[in-house]
């Protein structure tokens, strides 16, 4: 009977967290749409959105209508999806590699995606947004392959994988810098560097649609494999002993992580630390089991990124600080806390 009460307590807690986070997410998106160099009242924001959805025919100034719908709302929603996606990637990688420090940025996947994208932008291999995404995707996979190769598959310890990730990060960041400095002109170099640190400036509705598709698909796959991810708690062999097809699960989930990371990096640049910070915060609230953790990561990641985007736009007057700068300023102290707490117990 206590077990039943426990379960209801856990389910209730998850429902509460998800409900509150969704509420906060809606408020954050509304705030992100209202706040900016040109402030718009929340009421106007609401009417502009309902106008576009065909629910109302209220009288809103065309300029405000356009700013809300075409610039800010799409931007806020893409930010939310990017945050959700990166947080899911972090949770998956932390479980598969059994390392609290794992995330796409630390493992060099974001760096690989950046290199791929820069190859397309600067070297002009292919053209158009599809090939930019494909470039980022190829780069993300190249980084994954390199990390897998360096860390010698599943046989080496988690620390080995992180070291391999650091090596991959360095390599791909160096390649990116090399390509930019030798091939680009000064303006191109500045654009690329700004883009690498992350920016939601250029995103529009088509980006939102693509990202929504990718995030929903990934989240579904990950949740279906949530039970199997739990079985990795004591390592690969233990998961196999519990009947989990370890090789297949790893392949699919690494693929999903690379797809998500590549899609996000190709749209908004390499945004670090969201994948690291959010899963730890979410785990603290809903516990380590993935059927609860993954949805919680998605909403908390979304809220975090929308708020980070607001901060990046208001912290310096007339300037947008790169989003990666904001997330890193929050993420690095958090990283330090994890490192400190991960020390072997004396």
């Amino acid at each position: 009977m206590t077990a039943k009460a426990d379960r209801q307590g856990e389910a209730g807690r998850l429902a509460l967290v998800l409900f509150l986070s969704l509420l906060v997410l809606i408020l954050a998106v509304a705030a992100a749409t209202a706040i900016g160099d040109y402030s718009i009242a929340l009421g106007t924001v609401f009417l502009a959105v309902t106008n576009e959805l065909g629910l109302t025919g209220a009288d809103v100034a065309p300029i405000e209508q356009s700013v809300v719908w075409n610039l800010r709302l799409s931007r806020a929603l893409v930010a939310a999806l990017a945050g959700a996606g990166l947080a899911i990637c972090g949770a998956i990688l932390q479980a598969l590699l059994r390392n609290p420090l794992a995330e796409p940025f630390v493992l060099g996947v974001s760096a690989g995606a950046s290199t791929g994208a820069v190859c397309v932008i600067v070297l002009g291999i292919g053209a158009g947004s599809l090939s930019l995404s494909l470039g980022a995707f190829a780069g993300a996979f190249a980084a994954f392959a390199l990390v897998a190769l360096l860390s010698n598959g599943a046989t080496s310890g988690p620390n080995h994988t992180i070291l391999a990730g650091v090596a991959a990060s360095q390599l791909f960041n160096a390649l990116t810098s090399y390509i930019v400095t030798t091939s680009g002109n000064a303006q191109q170099a500045r654009d690329v560097m700004f883009w690498l640190l992350g920016s939601f400036g250029g995103v529009r509705w088509p980006d939102f649609q693509l990202l929504l598709l990718v995030v929903l698909l990934s989240l579904t796959i990950c949740i279906l494999m949530g039970r199997a991810l739990d079985a990795f708690t004591f390592g690969d062999e233990d998961a196999a002993a519990l009947g989990v097809p370890v090789g297949r699960i790893r392949l699919v989930l690494f693929g999903v992580t690379a797809l998500l990371t590549a899609t996000i990096v190709s749209m908004v640049g390499a945004i670090g630390f969201v994948g690291l910070v959010v899963p730890h915060a979410a785990r603290y609230v809903v516990g380590p089991l993935h059927l609860r953790l993954l949805p919680a990561c998605a909403v908390v990641g979304a809220v975090f990124m929308v708020i980070a985007d607001i901060v990046s736009r208001v912290v310096a007057a007339q300037q947008t600080v790169p989003i990666g700068v904001v997330t890193a300023l929050v993420g690095v102290p958090f990283f330090a806390i994890i490192l400190y707490r991960a020390r072997p117990q004396a």
């Binding site: 739990d230 708690t233 004591f234 390592g235 009947g243 989990v244 785990r283 516990g287 991960a342």
Partner: peptide, 17 residues
């Protein structure tokens, strides 16, 4: 494991298959 799991969570893993 480094994960902060409870005894119940660990034993429940046995039901995975």
């Amino acid at each position: 494991t480094d994960t902060n799991v409870s005894v119940r969570d660990v034993v429940r893993l046995g039901r995975t298959p």
